[in-house]
């Protein structure tokens, strides 16, 4: 084995393994997804949620300001009037249909910013993959937070 072969081939390989061996002692940066999940930053913006008040009433009043603010035009809101028998939100108005097209959404968070009642928020659930395009239209039922008991 000539000196050149040792210098250009063997030494870099050994040095490379050396780096790997040193790093073995350090903490790993990868996680074993999906068994393990990394904690996300506080301001991470992923899946939308329509929140409720503590009383269980919906915060959303169907004002459509989110749809107006949305740069991707992916929100569709249809409002209706609360009655005393059927009350969804405090006040006069509630959203009878609330749909977000997740394929179009760019997760900019403008809807959250525009919302006057803090109803729509972007939470940390990022696993949004699906098989059918239709399944990416998130309806109000899918977006609405379950009533806490």
């Amino acid at each position: 084995m000539s000196f050149e072969v040792f210098r250009d081939v063997v030494k870099p390989i050994v040095a490379g393994f050396g780096i790997t061996a040193r790093r073995l002692a350090e903490q790993k940066v990868t996680v074993q997804y999906p068994d393990e999940r990394r904690e996300q930053f506080d301001r991470t913006r992923w899946r939308h949620v329509l929140t409720r008040y503590d009383s269980g009433l919906e915060r959303c009043i169907g004002c459509s300001l989110c749809a107006g603010a949305c740069p991707a035009r992916c929100i569709y809101v249809e409002a209706a009037e609360n009655t005393d028998d059927e009350r969804y939100s405090p006040g006069e108005r509630y959203a009878v249909r609330y749909e977000i097209n997740m394929l179009r959404c760019i997760f900019c968070g403008y809807c959250q910013e525009a919302c006057p009642t803090g109803a729509i928020v972007l939470r940390k659930d990022f696993e949004l993959a699906n098989y059918e395009r239709e399944d990416f239209i998130y309806t109000k039922e899918m977006l609405l937070e379950p009533i806490r008991r």
């Binding site: 459509s64 749809a67 107006g68 249809e78 409002a79 009037e81």
Partner: peptide
């Protein structure tokens, strides 16, 4: 027209 749409819709 009550609550049927907003002008930007």
């Amino acid at each position: 027209y009550r609550f049927r749409a907003r002008p930007w819709d």
